[in-house]
């Protein structure tokens, strides 16, 4: 009960209602519902193929949902009449494979969106980009091309690229899975900082220890459904469903 009261005080950011995604006969998502509040740091875990990526990619309609509804900041973005491009600007996304634009310098990667989509001047966009670059310790790489960067650097730049759009939520799909182990830490550090600044985050990851550390809520997905959901501490220390228990036993 107290839990509910707490939530009501917080501002609802994304309301997901009975979301589903079918690929032909394959049901990747089966009626997922969840409310995401401002400042939430939600980690999504689960076995491979359970629909974690599909869920995340449906949130900004990179994957077109086949059923259900998503309200983002009160607006139904699953409605075909909604201009999804406008709302995507407010939903930053970070990919496993970084997906930096290889034909542009780091700085150009960061300023393209703000300049072309938000009408910022070059000077203004570059100033903001440089500030963020400094904060992730990569200001000296502004003039480099993505191919000249290490994996960890690329992913930090990719996070900054999303941040340059001043998003209201950040979506991460296994941001450290393509990295060499020694580079995972630097990316997690940036995410840790973001969480501290109350950025709303939805993170799909296999880094269970990291989830334990910074998540306030954790979702366990299985077969395209949310099998269990709870506060981080409760989730890990006191799992209820058998499948989650088995999953945690395997990964912890």
């Amino acid at each position: 009960m107290s839990d509910n009261l707490n939530k009501n005080e917080k501002e609802l950011l994304i309301h997901v209602d009975d979301l589903s995604k079918h690929f032909d006969n394959l049901h990747a998502l089966n009626g997922v519902s969840i409310d995401i509040y401002k400042g939430d740091v939600i980690f999504v875990v689960g076995p491979s193929g359970s629909g974690k990526s599909t869920f995340l990619r449906c949130l900004n309609r990179l994957e077109e949902p086949t059923g259900g509804k998503i309200l983002f900041e009160g607006i139904d973005i699953t409605d075909k009449k909604t201009d999804i491009n406008k709302h995507r600007q407010k939903m930053g996304m970070v990919f496993q494979q970084f997906n930096l634009f290889p034909h542009m310098t780091v700085l150009k990667n960061l300023t393209l969106g703000p300049m072309k989509l938000q009408g910022k001047s070059k000077a203004e966009a570059e100033e903001e980009a440089m500030k963020l670059l400094e904060r992730v310790g990569l200001a000296d790489r502004a003039k480099a091309y993505p191919n000249q960067l290490s994996g960890g650097q690329k992913q930090r730049i990719a996070i900054v690229r999303a941040l340059c759009m001043k998003p209201d939520v950040m979506l991460f799909d296994e941001p450290t899975s393509a990295l060499d182990p020694e580079m995972v830490g630097e990316v997690l550090e940036v995410m840790r900082e973001l969480a501290k600044e109350n950025m709303t985050m939805v993170v799909v990851t296999h880094e269970i220890a990291f989830a334990k550390e910074i998540a306030n809520r954790v979702i366990f997905m299985a077969d395209g459904e949310i099998e269990e959901e709870g506060d981080a501490a409760e989730f890990f220390d006191n799992p209820k469903s058998e499948r989650l228990k088995a999953f945690l036993a395997k990964v912890l």
């Binding site: 990179l62 491009n85 709302h87 995507r88 600007q89 494979q97 634009f101 034909h103 072309k116 759009m165």
Partner: peptide
């Protein structure tokens, strides 16, 4: 071109044509 490039462009809020012009075609 890696489909991830189109996804990255679209996720920033560029529409299909813009992503083509700024990101896909130059590469």
């Amino acid at each position: 071109i890696d489909p991830g490039q189109m996804e990255a462009g679209r996720s920033l809020g560029f529409n299909y044509i813009q992503t083509m012009c700024y990101i896909i075609i130059p590469q």
